[in-house]
Write a protein that binds this DNA or RNA. Structure first.
Lengths: 142, 142
DNA sequence: CTACACCCTCTAGCTGCTGTAGGTTCAAGT
DNA sequence: ACTTGAACCTACAGCAGCTAGAGGGTGTAG
């Protein structure tokens, strides 16, 4: 039986985050000692590992909730899990495209800065005037 | 003189966002009509454009605050503006590297899913077992 | 039986907005 | 001059996904 601290250490999660996951129903309410402290078993360890790993792959908590649900029902067809992963992949690809455009723009800004007074700074100039941009970058979304 | 709505339209910002920027001191308190409505001039239009453009390039509000400060003092050397931009570039590059690793992992997951039962789903399997990952992806940070 | 590391709940804060409620003002049309 | 209706005002709550702190209780090793 693991204390919350041990579970945290084993999964690379913060204690508060585990309690938060419990609060939003992502982790089950665990057993408690007489004094009210949480104790976890291997099931919970697996579940939290799944959650952490999914987070590391960038899945939103809602998506993880769905994935966990699917994982709990081994006999259903796996189209849905597949669809969630594909959606996530699409999102990652969209973000990549955006970030690549940003990198280009930032590189250009930085390269053109000749190190004079801020009055002549290309960095500030570019920020002042959108028309100097080569690429469109309308959305901010992460 | 622009109303807040017109300023919003011209810069592609929401009205509430402008008021928010004012609240956190990023935009100045503008003049008001007798009835208490905000009225903006060209200075504010420029400032907000600068902010929006910087946001589109992914700068944090604090970085933008600094950049605006620098922009207001044209005779100081521009090393700092340059440093801020370089920092932002570094951050973008770090995020890109991370996202590329995620893309690889997600692609592999999706490709290996054969469309059977969730019990055999590679997507879920991979999420369950971190050791199947080819790449490390420890941090989640945006 | 005492230290002391760990646990508990509750609440507030972070970034960067966005939305809603409930009320007022402005400008155009009659 | 008066009415309409869009746009404005303030104030506050909420989003994701945690994180930090206060103020107190528990568990266990020596």
């Amino acid at each position: 039986m693991l204390t919350i601290g041990n579970l945290a250490r084993r999964t690379g999660t913060k204690v508060q985050t585990i309690r938060y996951y419990e609060q939003i129903g992502l982790m089950p309410e665990p057993g408690r000692t007489g004094g009210g402290q949480r104790r976890y078993g291997p099931t919970e360890l697996d579940r939290l590992s799944f959650i952490r790993h999914s987070r590391q792959l960038g899945f939103a908590l809602d998506a993880i909730r769905e994935l966990l649900n699917l994982s709990d029902h081994p006999d259903t067809p796996c189209d849905e899990a597949d669809a969630i992963a594909r959606r996530q992949l699409k999102q990652v690809e969209r973000r990549l495209a955006r970030l690549e455009a940003l990198r280009t723009e930032l590189r250009r800004m930085v390269q053109e800065c000749s190190g004079g007074r801020t009055a002549d700074c290309r960095v500030l100039e570019v920020l002042r005037d959108h028309s100097e941009c080569l690429t469109e970058h309308e959305e901010i979304g992460a």
